[in-house]
Amino acid sequence: MANILLVEDDKNQQILFAEELRLDGHQVAVVGSGPEAIQAVQSQPPDLVVLDVAMPQMDGIEALGRILAENSRIPVILHTAYGTYRESFMAWAADAYVIKSSDQSELRAEVRRVLANRAKAKNP
């Protein structure tokens, strides 16, 4: 139901996460790096960004900063295999922090929640 930008450098994971998110009816656009994500946000702002952290050239945290600088209202979900940044994500003004697991249900649930919150915020 929403336009989601998936930022993920791992090819296989690109396929997997996109398919999973589409199961919920979302439109999923996929980019493979930080710079591409920024460009995409600029050209076609999505409703939500699902952002990987460990990426070459520009990692997810830097990308997050730039994306929010570009458009501070876009909700971003950090989606990473790192378990250690969970405590910090609020400092980075991400809306959610999901650890990659073999079960994508948490991701899907967080997407739903964040989208709902934004909708609520928009329409009190």
Partner: peptide, 10 residues
Amino acid sequence: RNPLATIGGF
């Protein structure tokens, strides 16, 4: 985790 997530998901 990354491969696991991929394996599990697929």
